[in-house]
C-alpha cells in the first residue's frame, strides 16, 4: 500500500469514528431532551407531541445499531471467551480467522435480509410516526449491519495476514 493511500485510509478511519461519535451523542442528547420535554409540556403547558413516544422508541433502535457499530470498531462485542487463552499463539490466530470470518458472514446475511425487509416496506408504502415513510427509520438496519460486516472483514483480513506472517517465519522457504 502506498503512503498516500495509507494516509487516506487513516483519514477515512478518523472521519468514520467522528461521525459515529457524533451520531451517538446527538441521538442520546436528543433522547434525553425529548423525553423530559414531554414531561414539561404535559405538566406545565397541558400539551405534548403526539408522536414523541414512537420517535423515542425508534431512537432506541438507532442508538442500539450505531452503538453496535461503534462496539465493532474496537471488537468490543459481548462474547464468551473461555477457550482462546489456552491456545498456542498460532492456534489463537487460526481461531481468530474463523471467528471473524464467521461474524462477517453472519453480518452480511443480516445486512442483506434487513435490506430486503426495508425494500418491502418501501414497496408497500409502510408508514410510521403518523405518515412518514417507514423505510426512513428502518434503513439504519442494513447500513449498520453492513458496517459491522466491513469491520469484521478487516479483522479477518488482518488475522489472516498475521497468521501468514507467522507461518512464513516459522518455515522459511
Amino acid at each position: 500500500m502506498s503512503d498516500a493511500a495509507g494516509r487516506l485510509g487513516d483519514r477515512l478511519e478518523r472521519a468514520g469514528r467522528l461521525l459515529e461519535d457524533l451520531v451517538l451523542i446527538v441521538l442520546l442528547s436528543a433522547m434525553m431532551l425529548l423525553a423530559t420535554a414531554q414531561i414539561l409540556l404535559r405538566n406545565v403547558f397541558d400539551s405534548g407531541f403526539i408522536w414523541a413516544d414512537e420517535v423515542l422508541k425508534l431512537m432506541v433502535l438507532w442508538l442500539a445499531l450505531f452503538g453496535a457499530v461503534a462496539a465493532s470498531r474496537a471488537d468490543k462485542h459481548i462474547s464468551i471467551d473461555v477457550v482462546s487463552r489456552f491456545l498456542s499463539p498460532s492456534l489463537r490466530l487460526v481461531s481468530q480467522c474463523m471467528v471473524n470470518a464467521f461474524t462477517t458472514v453472519v453480518c452480511v446475511l443480516l445486512a442483506w435480509h434487513s435490506a430486503r425487509f426495508v425494500y418491502s416496506a418501501w414497496e408497500f408504502g409502510d408508514e410510521l410516526v403518523g405518515g412518514l415513510p417507514a423505510w426512513w427509520f428502518q434503513i439504519v438496519m442494513p447500513i449498520a449491519f453492513a458496517l459491522i460486516a466491513w469491520r469484521y472483514l478487516l479483522f479477518t483480513g488482518s488475522a489472516v495476514l498475521r497468521l501468514g506472517n507467522r507461518l512464513r517465519h516459522r518455515n522459511p522457504a
Binding site: R42, D46, S47, G48, I50, A52, D53, E54, G130
Partner: peptide
C-alpha cells in the same frame, strides 16, 4: 385540563382530541 390517554398511532383519536381542543397523553 384533564389528562386523557389515547393509544399510540390512533389517527381517529388524535384528530378527535384536537377538535375538542383537548390534549392527549400518549403513554
Amino acid at each position: 385540563g384533564k389528562k386523557v390517554w389515547v393509544p399510540e398511532g390512533d389517527t381517529i383519536s388524535y384528530r378527535t382530541m384536537a377538535a375538542l381542543e383537548l390534549s392527549p397523553v400518549t403513554l
